[in-house]
């Protein structure tokens, strides 16, 4: 079963994503921004869904830490954002994010297909259901 970690400060939204992805057969954990890197190191997920605008630690900081860590740099990261065209988004791609999702424009089915695509392209997560 492929493992996904959601790093997102909007708890309600994170729970909604968790519900949907669990339904689709993923193992999903939600992490707080401050604990994100540690959680990812411990869990070794197949994919990270990472919000950018969070209160304590900015998503870009987390992304940079992940990509500078030899052990974690191969884990694909999908950026969650609500602000298209922000500089941060291009910075995130430059730092090695696999792609991004504009939350307001994404319904749950698109989320699922993007998650599958991101994991698939990394040729990890053989146990994906559906």
């Amino acid at each position: 079963m492929a493992k996904v970690i959601i790093v997102e400060d909007d708890v309600k939204l994170a729970q909604n994503y968790q519900q949907k992805l669990t339904q689709e057969g993923f193992e999903v954990k939600i992490s707080e921004d401050v604990a994100a890197v540690e959680t990812i190191r411990a869990e070794k997920p197949d994919l990270v869904l990472l919000d950018l605008l969070m209160p304590k630690v900015h998503g870009l900081t987390i992304l940079r830490e992940l990509k500078m860590d030899a052990e974690l740099e191969t884990i694909p990261v999908l950026i969650l954002t609500n602000v298209e065209g922000a500089n941060e988004l291009s910075e995130a791609i430059a730092f090695g994010a696999s792609g991004y999702l504009v939350k307001a424009d994404t319904n749950l089915d698109i989320l699922v297909s993007k998650v599958k695509e991101a994991i698939g392209s990394q040729a990890i997560g053989t146990g994906i259901k559906g």
């Binding site: 909007d10 939204l13 909604n16 949907k20 605008l53 609500n82 602000v83 939350k103 307001a104």
Partner: peptide, 27 residues
């Protein structure tokens, strides 16, 4: 502008996904 976009879209996103889950019967 970015902050406002975020502040307005965040609750909408949350509402939208909750409603979706209700519709799908997951919630």
């Amino acid at each position: 502008t970015s902050m406002m976009v975020h502040e307005l879209r965040a609750p909408l996103t949350s509402i939208k996904s909750t409603v979706e889950l209700l519709q799908e019967g997951i919630y």
